[in-house]
Amino acid sequence: MSGKIVFNIRELAKRPPKLLPGHRLCAGCAAPIIAKLALLATDRPTIVVNATGCLEVATTIFPYTSWNVPWIHNAFENAASTASGIEAVIKALKKKGKYKYENVDIIVFAGDGGTYDIGLQSLSGALERGHDFLYILYDNEAYMNTGIQRSGGTPLGAWTTTSPAGRVIPGKTQHKKPIADIAVAHRIPYVATATPAHWMDFMRKVRKGLDVNGPAFIHALSPCDRGWRFDTSETIEVCKLAVDTCYFPLWEFENGEWRLTDRSLAIARNPRLKKPVEEFLKVQGRFKHLFKPENRHLIEEIQRHVDAIWEDLLERTGIK
């Protein structure tokens, strides 16, 4: 059960960080919180593969690097296949007795563009082949690195620079792709959703994902203050609202079993805790236009969508 792993933050906080300060991600960015917590969840030697994106770019502006773990950025769409090669070569070198480490954790960090869109094929291939690695999607719901363009991870109604809120079309006209469900459909040993706000839950999931034998996938929500249009101090609050409204439920799929975790489990047990999705939308400038009378129906549509997914999740987890 997810409650077994405990992290003593007072001890962990004394250690030298594996992701170093001096990186140039925006103030208030959730991605470095996700990366640092993930790296904190394992004591084993770690190799990081990073898809092209904000995290990759802002942590390795030559001649500087923020990574105190071995790290490789190959390209945008191939983080999972790069990890496949690393995992395979470690196996091969072990067979020859030419590899020093008993276990090495391989962690991929990739954004929504590199996962939902351009990297989906490479991810699916690596999941199907069963490589032993953990893929962490930090989902900021648009191409933030290139200046806030819509991706397969952008939610309905959201303003982006390629789904602008115009006079005729009010933001993105499609829902978010159910990326974690796509990972589950591969029947890999471990899939979970997480946010940095629910940090203990996230770190436990990282540990589980690393401990299973085979591929693991964690979909972490990564609010972007620049792209979502909120104050830099609100990053964690926005995560909490995403979970409290069931816009982004916390769950895990482990060896064929579904389970709600952390705050989402509490909401399932006490439905009165569930907030309207409006609470999540209204704190973000990217949804501002939805509050005009003529677009109000979109908020209702988003609420219906959120409710349907939540109900489905309650069924899958056996709560309903």
């Binding site: 999972a80 790069t82 990890a83 090669g85 395979a88 070569v89 490479s122 699916s124 291939g125 690596a126």
Partner: peptide, 28 residues
């Protein structure tokens, strides 16, 4: 052979996996 054969899903991934394997110290 002791080789790990990775039957990738595209040539793009073939070369990407070779990059990972070679960067991690192997012959690819």
């Amino acid at each position: 052979v002791h080789t790990e054969f990775v039957a990738v899903e595209s040539e793009h991934s073939a070369m990407s996996a070779c990059v990972g394997a070679a960067a991690a110290g192997g012959r690819a």
